[in-house]
Amino acid sequence: MVKVMIIGLALLVSGQAAYAAQDPTAPLGWYKKKSTGVAKVKTYPLPTLQSIVCDEGSNCFAMLNDKILSDGQSVAGYKIRHINSERVIVARAGKIWHLELFNSDVRQ
């Protein structure tokens, strides 16, 4: 009799532990995803160069992602290193990109 009560009590406790492991308010069939332990890397898309305008004093401004910017400013996580009449140089995380308005490999 005591063995039956202990086994019954053990089944009751294990059933309660399994019930508590799942959220009772969650939709039917839904299970919480287990984390893989791998951190997701956030990506930053390269800004789109739309135009470059330079005045007579060689001060140049560029339109990137619909914003007018100059040297030293930032856009979309990238810092503008230099703007000249042909290209815009941007940097992020130690890497440098040269953005140009037109493809240098134009064929006629």
Rank of each mutant, 00 (worst) to 15 (best):
K32N: 06
P47E: 08
F102P: 00
L99N: 07
Y31M: 11
P47Q: 10
G15L: 08
M1A: 03
A62W: 02
Q108I: 03
L49N: 01
L28E: 13
N65S: 14
K34Q: 08
G8Y: 02
A93P: 00
K42C: 03
A20N: 13
K33P: 15
Q50P: 04
A91S: 15
N59D: 14
A39L: 01
N59C: 02
L49F: 02
D71F: 00
K40C: 00
A10Q: 07
L69T: 01
K32G: 02
V38M: 07
E56W: 12
A10R: 04
Y31I: 09
S35P: 06
R107V: 12
V13Y: 03
Y78H: 04
K79N: 06
S74Q: 07
H98R: 15
Y19S: 13
L69K: 04
C54I: 08
L69A: 01
W30D: 07
Q50Y: 03
I6F: 08
K95R: 14
L49E: 02
L28V: 14
C60E: 06
K79C: 01
N65Y: 08
T43C: 02
H98N: 13
S74W: 06
V106L: 09
S51F: 01
I68D: 06
I68R: 15
Q73A: 13
D66N: 12
P24E: 07
H82G: 01
V53I: 08
Y31G: 06
V2L: 12
V4N: 09
L11R: 01
G29E: 06
L101I: 12
A18V: 09
W97Q: 11
S58L: 09
K67L: 15
S104R: 12
V53T: 14
H98T: 14
G94M: 05
Y19R: 15
D71H: 03
A76H: 09
E86Q: 02
I7W: 06
K42G: 00
T43D: 10
I80E: 01
D105G: 03
R81C: 01
R87I: 04
M1K: 00
K32P: 03
I52K: 13
Q16N: 03
S104T: 12
S14K: 06
I80G: 00
P24T: 09
S51Y: 02
A93H: 13
M1Q: 05
K95G: 07
L28N: 04
D66P: 02
Q22C: 08
V106D: 14
C60S: 08
T48K: 13
T48V: 15
S104V: 10
W30L: 15
G37L: 03
L11K: 02
N84P: 09
S85H: 15
A39S: 02
G37M: 05
S74N: 09
T43A: 08
F102E: 13
G37Q: 05
Q73R: 04
S14T: 14
A20K: 13
A91E: 15
